[in-house]
């Protein structure tokens, strides 16, 4: 169980820094096609922003509610990634061959570009949820009692 941090400096800084971190994470995620970045890094930065919120404002604060709700999305990222692969198979091609995504009005290269964007979102969701989930697992209250009793 993480309690809110006492210091007003940390709390005020957190209020300013966390939105910036989240926006930067989204930027890195979607800019991955044009510059350095991509799904993995973007997801990790998004997750780090949520973890920062949990560390500063505690488990129970309304600001951490989003990070807690994110935990319900365990597996959604994998579903997006594999789902794109499945859509490619439905479109009549190999698994994860984005050229077969069945979207009318797009040429092959644009379909592959779209497939890259979708799978990157999948990776980012998966990584962000996993990072937050590990922190929540490590800071759950039961562990402390166990280590004292055992």
């Amino acid at each position: 169980m993480i309690r809110p941090h006492d210091s007003i400096i940390v709390q005020t800084l957190g209020r300013f820094v966390i939105p910036v971190v989240q926006i930067f994470g989204l930027y890195v995620l979607f800019f991955g096609q044009y510059g350095p970045g991509g799904g993995f890094v973007g997801g990790v930065i998004l997750g780090a922003g949520m973890i920062l919120s949990v560390l500063i404002f505690g488990h129970d604060a309304s600001r951490s509610q989003y990070a807690r709700n994110v935990l319900h999305g365990d597996g959604v990222g994998m579903l997006i990634y594999a789902g794109v692969g499945g859509l490619c198979m439905i479109g009549g091609g190999e698994f994860l061959n984005y050229a077969n995504l069945d979207i009318p009005g797009l040429e092959t290269a644009s379909r592959r570009s779209l497939g890259i964007v979708l799978t990157q979102i999948g990776v980012a969701v998966d990584v962000a949820v996993t990072a937050v989930s590990i922190v929540f697992s490590l800071s759950a209250e039961e562990i402390m009692e166990d280590s004292i009793n055992g």
Binding site: G32, Q33, Y34, G35, P36, G38, G39, G85, L96, Y98, A109, S110, R112, S113, G115, I116, T119, Q120
Partner: peptide
């Protein structure tokens, strides 16, 4: 792939 970043296109398309 219409993706300027070669690293991304290799990671997410060729080596998907």
């Amino acid at each position: 792939t219409h993706t300027p970043n070669v690293v991304t296109s290799v990671l997410m398309d060729y080596r998907s």
